[in-house]
């Protein structure tokens, strides 16, 4: 049961990672990257590492997404992410 759940989660993370790298809009890219972080958090919790899961949830997902969004706001005056 946990194996099936974990494999479904890994598929979700893989799709999110591919979308985060290949999508054209930068804001979508940042949100897909935060999906990768959330999935990794659940995987860490499944792997009996609650300390790492807490750190990934607070630092690796929340803070990094905030910093990416702040950078996007600072840099989005003239140019939008049309480069892939």
């Amino acid at each position: 049961m946990i194996t099936v759940f974990g494999i479904l989660l890994m598929a979700m993370i893989a799709i999110s990672a591919v979308k985060a790298i290949t999508t054209t809009k930068l804001i979508d890219s940042v949100l897909f990257f935060s999906f990768v972080g959330i999935g990794a958090t659940i995987l860490f919790a499944l792997m009996k590492a609650p300390d790492v899961a807490l750190t990934e949830a607070a630092v690796g997902t929340g803070l990094v997404t905030l910093v990416f969004l702040s950078t996007l706001r600072r840099t989005s005056e003239q140019e939008h992410g049309d480069e892939q």
Binding site: V30, V36, A40, E56, G81, Q84
Partner: peptide
């Protein structure tokens, strides 16, 4: 990738992979 923010997102994804490998 050609956008700098995309490059940093890719780097963070690779780092997540390394973390998962160690915990596994």
């Amino acid at each position: 990738r050609k956008n700098l923010i995309k490059i940093f997102i890719s780097l963070s994804i690779a780092e997540t992979g390394v973390n998962l490998l160690y915990i596994s």
